[in-house]
């Protein structure tokens, strides 16, 4: 971290069984290239080791470090503190999914929204010869989606409907229409056409803005709806 000054950070804190959530303020050294994750790790190392956060790859690839920075969904590992004008800069966990602790959310709630009878996961072809760790048969991945949950956090419909499938799950369904990989196309469309499916979207387009992988979730939802519309029109007598 090349240091040229300091920034104030207001960080969401929550520990189970330890009262309600609150915010703690920290002053962190910050330079022009300091990322939000740099700042949070500095807090862990130098100010409060009990601060819980999640990260892995440090280069916008694993999708584990998603947070809200001044209300905007970001991958903390590539979000520059200098791009945020807040004083203090507020760092919160992702919205619309349960918080486990501090900045860590329960991603099980994100994955629960995917259609579990459809092959939205595929064998990873990215790392030839890599050995999966104990407990995993093989590596699998979702298309371009890095499963970070930023889209679900940004989605205003998900804010008022916990049952809404959400942008990532619907995008995965649309990918299955492009490349079925053995999926039953009608079944995928029936899943996407449920009341809590694609028609629940209200064109806020925030998911596409938030997506760090350019997976274009909003555009995919619209493509799905176009398919659904054509199918429903065709089914009419």
């Amino acid at each position: 971290m090349s240091e040229t000054g300091t920034r104030r950070l207001r960080v969401h804190r929550f520990k189970r069984g330890d009262g309600g959530a609150h915010f703690d303020e920290f002053v962190v050294p910050a330079g022009p290239r300091t990322t939000v994750l740099d700042a949070l790790r500095w807090i862990q190392l130098h100010a409060d080791p009990s601060l819980a956060l999640r990260h892995s790859c440090m280069h916008a690839s694993c999708g584990t470090c998603g947070v809200q920075v001044d209300g905007q969904e970001e991958l903390a590992c590539v979000a520059r503190l200098g791009d945020h004008r807040g004083d203090p800069v507020t760092v919160e966990p992702l919205a619309n999914v349960p918080v486990l602790t501090d900045l860590v959310v329960d991603m099980a709630d994100f994955f629960r929204r995917f259609g579990d009878r459809h092959p939205v996961l595929r064998a990873s072809e990215a790392v030839a010869g890599a050995q999966p760790p104990d407990g995993l048969d093989r590596f699998v991945r979702l298309e371009d989606c890095i499963e970070c949950g930023l889209c679900l956090s940004a989605c205003p419909v998900a804010a008022t409907s916990a049952r809404y499938a959400g942008p990532a799950a619907l995008s995965a369904a649309q990918r299955l229409l492009e490349e079925p990989r053995g999926a039953d196309r009608d079944d995928v469309l029936a899943w996407a056409g449920r009341p809590e499916g694609a028609w629940r979207c209200h064109v806020g387009m925030e998911c596409t803005r938030a997506c760090p992988a350019d997976a274009l979730p909003a555009e995919r939802i619209m493509a799905l709806r176009r398919e659904l519309g054509g199918r429903e029109a065709g089914a009419r007598p």
Partner: peptide, 19 residues
Amino acid sequence: RAAPGPVRHKGGAGGVRGW
């Protein structure tokens, strides 16, 4: 730890405030 964690929304409280 077994209890589900709180779900936060933009705007701090209910979803409508988040809009």
